[in-house]
Design a protein around this nucleic acid. Structure first.
Lengths: 325, 325
DNA sequence: CTGAAAGCGCTTACAG
DNA sequence: CTGAAAGCGCTTACAG
């Protein structure tokens, strides 16, 4: 390779790494040789010689083996990829297992990757903190419940829920319930608190809260039944996730409540199933792909040692009005 | 590390790679030292010195930037992961872009990974063939339409569709239509051909075919409208994908057809939305996670140079009977 | 702006 | 069964 371009290995390296002090002539010769030879630098050698791994890890907590089928994760993955494209950074996917957390920390802190992106579905996970303590650059997607100094990116769940609550109030609803997510997940609590604020602003009671321990249609259905038995007169429900809203709709249909006439329903997430639901679901959209992009952008910024990086970020959400409310 | 264990570097290497000729004493000493030091071997050095990359790539075709949110892909990914766990093989995720296919081939053939797993959603993709020609071990998920020698793993779409057709016949349906997928995708054609066989077996006509060019609810809805206008008397429809079935259900409801009394509907895939549809959807289940596991198992077998590897594999499907048929 | 030389941390024949 | 030595293909000071 160096010979083909008529320069030294050092110069080839400089060109490839886009270092400043290379003559135009040498640069052109190297580029031409790269084309002629179809040369692709050996990553392992670069990693070993340099001090960078040229790779980042996307870590998914085991609890969410199911997480991989979660649209949230898929969207994040897409965003991470989009942001990485063009960069010479590989994406390594890792899933933690209950028994090998020590291995994972050792691996990730051992220079095999330059930084870590983590999707934290249950905010209690101690892994982000351990990694940060070990000096590994890390950005978490979704607000973690533990670990103050950890940089995270999240959708603005609080304000999204607040907007949903305000909309229900503005459309004349007088007895508004909510189906909230698990109490140990920031996403669940943030959405609940947004709804509470909305109720408080309107001077309405915020007693009609049913928690589901899981984000599933069945969890939503059980919560909906609970709410209806506690307050048969409720005329609206804010469901903290579209997937739970599917179960809530099922129960409302079964009890012959007309939607939205008798009960207005607002979801959260704007999954694809929201627009095909019966009736199409009014919901709060979060841009999950943007979340992935932003996480990656933050991590790469950390790695490049950029100054003045933003602290943790909240991404805007928006209410998408369809037929259910 | 070698010093801590009181042996040479060579011996440490042999222990780590589980080579046979090591004394129990040396092995124990090394294992102890690994524990004491929290030692984790440097992958880059292993890759560079050895001839293995200790990594495989999962390649997703760009056409499916959306593919990442596809439950199919998510399931495959989960299976790949499950099968890889415990092995010291990293999973590198790559997405092809329209303009850099040459780069991709160069990269993948350049020894950066030991083998390639590819999810081929549109069967015409030339990439698998190029990689195979370049000598890269590769296993494709979903039958590719080009490239004879390429090992693939797929669900048994033909027999799944056949079983669905037989079931509709057995339950007394007399005018059975199908909503088929795109003609350029093996998955679409295999399911269509299975349905055709079922019609032929029963001596029923197989003229009621509507192709959708995309696997979406709207595509399914348009096809359903087409079928109803061509044959208002149809009493059953086999939809080649649950996601399209959602659109078909919408149209049937809008035209006040009772399901399943007037029209029976059978889908394919058994996505989560199938069980929460109205009415819950009878569908053909494919085990996508198993598909991912099997792909990985095949590739690792190739890499280990195992003899008598199976050629391409078909995984069984099963009919899940719910309320829609 | 450029090249010669050392070194990254392993694996792999080779010799014993 | 084990160790000394070479080498994998780069990057990085260092000297010029």
């Amino acid at each position: 390779m160096a010979r083909a371009a008529g320069v030294s290995r050092s110069t080839v390296s400089r060109v490839i790494n886009e270092e400043p002090y290379v003559s135009a002539k040498a640069r052109d010769a190297v580029h031409q040789a790269i084309l002629d030879l179809g040369y692709s630098p050996n990553q392992a050698a670069r990693t070993l010689a340099g001090n960078r791994a040229n790779a980042i890890a996307l870590v998914v907590s085991e609890q969410g083996s199911r997480v991989l089928s979660d649209p949230f994760f898929a969207g994040v993955l897409r965003g991470v990829h989009a942001e990485l494209s063009g960069r010479r950074v590989q994406l390594v996917l890792m899933m933690t297992q209950q028994d090998d957390e020590q291995d994972i920390v050792g691996y990730l802190a051992g220079g095999h990757v330059d930084g870590v992106l983590m999707v934290s579905l249950h905010g209690q996970d101690p892994l982000p903190l351990k990694l940060a303590d070990a000096g590994v650059p890390i950005v978490v997607g979704g607000r973690p419940l533990v670990g103050d100094g950890i940089q995270y990116v999240d959708s603005d769940n609080f304000n999204g829920a607040l907007e949903a609550a305000r909309y229900l109030v503005a459309t004349g609803r007088r007895r508004i319930a909510t189906i909230a997510g698990p109490k140990d997940m920031a996403v669940g609590m943030d959405r609940l608190n947004g709804w509470r604020r909305g109720m408080a602003e309107a001077g309405q009671p915020s007693d009609l809260v049913a928690h589901s321990t899981v984000f599933t249609p069945d969890g939503g259905a059980a919560a909906m039944e609970d709410l209806l038995s506690r307050e048969p007169e409720l005329d609206a429900v804010f469901v903290a996730a579209d997937i739970m809203a599917m179960g809530a709709l099922r129960v409302l249909h079964a009890q012959n409540r007309r939607i939205p006439r008798d009960v207005a329903v607002v979801g959260f997430d704007d999954l694809m199933i929201a627009s095909t639901a019966l009736p199409p679901l009014t919901t709060v959209r979060q841009d999950v792909e943007q979340l992935g992009r932003t996480m990656t952008w933050c991590l790469l910024g950390q790695l490049d040692g950029e100054e003045g990086l933003p602290p943790s970020l909240l991404l805007p959400t928006s209410l998408v009005i369809r037929a259910s409310a």
